[in-house]
Design a binder for these strands. Sequence first.
RNA 1: ACAGUAGGUCGGUCUGUCGCGCAAGAUAUUCUUGUGAGGAAAGUCCGGGCAACGCAGAGCACCAUACUUCUUAACGAGAAGCCAUUCGUGAGGGUGGAGUAGCGUAACAGAGAAUAACCGCCACCGCAAGGUGGUAAGGGUGAAAAGGUGGGGUAAGAGCCCACCGGGCAGUGUGGCAACACAUUGUGCCGUACGUCUUAUGGGUUGUAAGGUUAUGUAUACCGGCGCAGUAGGGCUGCUCGUCCGAUGCCGGGGGGUAAACCGCAAAGAGUUUUAUGGUGACAUAAAACCAAGAUAAAUGACAGACGCUCCGGAAACGGAGUACAUAACCCGGCUUAUAGGCUUACUGUUUUU
Length: 128
Amino acid sequence: MSHRLSKEEKLCSRKKIETLFAEGQSFAQYPLRIVYRIHPKSSPDEQHQFFVSVPKRKFKKAVKRVWLRRRVREAYRLHKDIINYNGDKCLDMAFLYIAAEQKEYHIIEKQMIEILRKLAHILNKDTE
RNA sequence: ACAGUAGGUCGGUCUGUCGCGCAAGAUAUUCUUGUGAGGAAAGUCCGGGCAACGCAGAGCACCAUACUUCUUAACGAGAAGCCAUUCGUGAGGGUGGAGUAGCGUAACAGAGAAUAACCGCCACCGCAAGGUGGUAAGGGUGAAAAGGUGGGGUAAGAGCCCACCGGGCAGUGUGGCAACACAUUGUGCCGUACGUCUUAUGGGUUGUAAGGUUAUGUAUACCGGCGCAGUAGGGCUGCUCGUCCGAUGCCGGGGGGUAAACCGCAAAGAGUUUUAUGGUGACAUAAAACCAAGAUAAAUGACAGACGCUCCGGAAACGGAGUACAUAACCCGGCUUAUAGGCUUACUGUUUUU
């Protein structure tokens, strides 16, 4: 499985993000919170899309936000094959960092794996 | 050697695995090659470029700046100086600097904070207690008490007069481009700070989410005609004058917002480095060489290990801890603030040795 992370996997559209927060479901896996929405593919090449958000309210310095965003993104990149899926639906995801302090990478990684496993389970259930 | 002062400068390196943005190329949808944060990228406090809109004018107001000369594209920035004051043994550091006619304020204490009389001193009146007047030499209060010391003078005193000293103002001379300094002459002219006020200079507004193009496609934008009507109202920085624009409805034309892509915008300019010359310096001139981030829910990374550096422990081997601040967003010049640790130049103080 490739660990590549292309631009098509990033959630950029403002409309999609608004829809995600308006209609999406969520659960927390401390220090992260995931907001997700399952929707049918509009084209066969469409992939799961995600983005990471670290609130400015909790981390005032840009350095810390960047530091955390990169680690969350790396955790997703290295373990995204957990939700690899060939059906006709795909996921929009938002990873929100909700802890107040900077956690070590291995903690973020561990919780990311948990989140992705749960998502994979939800995805399979939804297909059935 | 230790402690310090003022500048300048650097601010990690390497390996492995897995990745990202941009550019170019290819045998083209995956590869290859190149390249990819800062000295402050920060705060957004000034100045400029660039862009859009606005702009008949007058008066008042408002804001900023304010010693001198110089530097600069420009500045409220910088350099070199001057003066006052203050901290330091010192190298040096901090603060302040246009003008002052009028007006206002000066806590507490104190009789009194500016046309001073509480005590004291002197004269007169009174038997006395005390009263009237004169007096800023002495006492006490205070951050500050009407220049200081001595003499003359006087009822007692007082720049009332004189000598010397300090300061101010005016003149002259010397030095300096100048602020100013020094010398000298005259003049008894002799509290200070802040505010108000006055003067000079500058100031249109908004910021690249500016602004432009394209495709999609359609409003209460905009244009023309008729009418309410040159009315309501609005613009011209805030106000006044003045001046300009100017509605709602109907008819006809016309193409906006939103989301998207591209341009703006990515390699080149008030550029950087070195050398030379000029200048105390900021800086200028000339020559040579060198320049390659460009994201946009936002790349420049993650993990593992090694080395370096600092500190601690240790005889050593080595072990442990730490390795800052801070993430470009139109671009430049400054300012301010944050910063582990290191290098370096000049200078100061103390101690020791020669």
